[in-house]
């Protein structure tokens, strides 16, 4: 049944490994950039608040494909920004894809986190301010730790969406799972259902444990009030 795999011309595991790498770096980057954006959106400085709000609304409402294409055609091919010293297209494409995925998913992290901040009672921040902590200490020591614990489940959603959205990187030629799938559909057209099912299964293998693990984490870290 899977005899098309035996030819050895398709590196399915290798392609999924690129998917995992794309997911890993983009997840970390989105978490960091998303947290910064959330901090901006609740900051007392109007300029930061405005920047955060405008960024989130513009980027969140732009299709990911457009962002990825803009990174490839705009940043790289027009402006020559490669994010790397090497001229290996594979590396350049990978980094631009990670940048695009971070830029896009950070907006969802930001908004999830902001709803988490709203679950932290005002009194927590007041008590922290009354002790003499400054704004960034109040945010980093008291508010964000509690906000994160409240939004593990929505962040798991973002992570799962991110894992699947890495397939958009195929549009700029990053050799991840979706690109290989496209190739296999063309060459193994008699096994389309099988190929599709195989890639679908691959993504389930990646995302199902993520969701279950984070569901468990969410219960473990929940703040009792």
């Amino acid at each position: 049944m899977f005899d098309f795999l035996e030819s050895g011309q398709y590196d399915v595991l290798g392609a999924f490994w690129v998917t995992v790498q794309l997911t890993f770096y983009s997840a970390i980057g989105s978490l960091i950039w998303g947290t910064v954006l959330a901090a901006m959106r609740v900051s007392p400085v109007p300029l930061m608040r405005t920047f955060g709000t405008v960024y989130v609304h513009v980027v969140r409402n732009t299709p990911l494909t457009v962002i990825v294409m803009a990174a490839s055609l705009g940043l790289f091919q027009t402006l020559g920004i490669t994010l790397t010293g090497s001229d290996d297209f594979e590396v350049i494409g990978f980094r631009l894809a990670v940048l695009s995925l971070i830029a896009y998913h950070a907006t969802f992290v930001c908004e999830a986190l902001r709803s988490g901040i709203n679950t932290v009672p005002v009194g927590q921040a007041e008590a922290a301010r009354a002790l003499g902590l400054n704004f960034s200490q109040v945010l980093s020591l008291i508010v964000l730790p509690q906000a994160f614990r409240a939004v593990v489940t929505p962040l798991a959603n973002v992570l799962i969406a991110l894992t699947k959205n890495t397939t958009v990187a195929a549009a700029i030629g990053v050799a991840e799972a979706a690109l290989l799938m496209k190739e296999m559909i063309e060459t193994e057209s008699d096994a389309i259902f099988l190929v599709s099912a195989m890639f679908a299964f691959g993504f389930v293998v990646l995302t199902l444990p993520t969701g279950m693990l984070l569901g468990w984490v969410s219960k473990r870290v929940a703040v009792k009030r």
């Binding site: 009672p121 009194g123 927590q124 008590a127 009354a130 008291i142 730790p145 703040v223």
Partner: peptide, 11 residues
């Protein structure tokens, strides 16, 4: 400052 609702850091 001591508050009506205690406001101990819950985490």
């Amino acid at each position: 400052m001591v508050f009506q609702s205690f406001n101990l850091f819950a985490h």
